[in-house]
Design a binder for these strands. Structure first.
Lengths: 152, 152
DNA sequence: GCGATTTAGTTGAACACTCAACCAGTGCCG
DNA sequence: CGGCACTGGTTGAGTGTTCAACTAAATCGC
């Protein structure tokens, strides 16, 4: 209250709108490709990826939520769908009786293995192929700075 | 088919994940703030902004869809909601009888004016305050390159 | 130990987005 | 002119996300 708004100057305005447009277009494109080729949205693909990289292909629900930057609720709903598709299953946690462990099934792994090459090509084509090596480096630093700033 | 997948190297992997995390966290944060303070998601806010900047605060639906990077369907649904909130209204286009013109109402303008300062502060705080001027410049170039690449 | 708080996860309702199907009006080309 | 493809926009069904409320189990403080 009472403090004047520090409006965006024209450069900032331009940067903000370009960033908005670019990140939305990129995500929409990858989402559509993944939906078309693998029958799942990008968020679900990421869940499978994280599980596939975990020891024994399994993770606590809360850990999985953190890794995918998802709310617990969202992950719960997503897990219900992935489970009914047969791509993951949920088991009780032996050490914490509140806990649930999401496990990637063989079917889930197969679906992921089939989808991954196309998706990686998409990321490469739509993102990395457009940028110089220096820009990729800049983007990494900027993104890591933002992550630290937003979560710190 | 037959072409080996060019997997992401560790640097690219790291860049991609940081970008994903950062852009999702940023959007989620701004979305939540806007929902809390103005009772609308960021996508709807953007629609009102674009209308407020247009001559006579009005735009053809298709033009508005292009400006906001939205599908026509999405915009139609959004417009229905914004109209029932009384923030926009739709009029017939005099020169093309298929067309509809979205017009920002006074109520819509007032809601936007009330929401804007807080939102701008959010963008500044969560994005620009975290980056050096050089990084802002880099982000602008990268984003503009991506937009050109994705839409060209 | 035992009540109060916190953490893990799920649920249902309300809302938003996608996709495909659709109507209506425009414009092109014979 | 008359047919045909294209454009502008809407609709409904299906799917995903959010928010708040809720259960159950662990943990903290005394």
């Amino acid at each position: 209250m009472g403090v004047m708004t520090r409006w965006l100057d024209p450069d900032e305005q331009r940067t903000w709108r370009a960033f908005l447009t670019a990140s939305r277009a990129l995500m929409d494109t990858l989402d559509r490709e993944l939906q078309r080729d693998a029958g799942m949205p990008h968020a679900y693909y990421e869940i499978l990826v994280r599980l596939s990289e975990a020891p024994r292909r399994q993770l606590r629900m809360s850990e999985l939520a953190d890794l995918t930057g998802s709310s617990r609720s969202r992950l719960s709903h997503a897990a219900a769908r992935l489970e009914s598709a047969g791509w993951i299953r949920r088991e009780d946690c032996p050490t914490d009786r509140r806990g649930q462990i999401a496990v990637l099934t063989d079917d889930g792994f197969a679906v992921l293995a089939a989808a991954a090459p196309g998706h990686v090509e998409g990321v490469r084509h739509h993102l990395f192929d457009a940028l110089s090596p220096a820009q990729v480096d800049q983007l990494r630093r900027i993104s890591e700075t933002l992550v630290a700033h937003l979560t710190g």
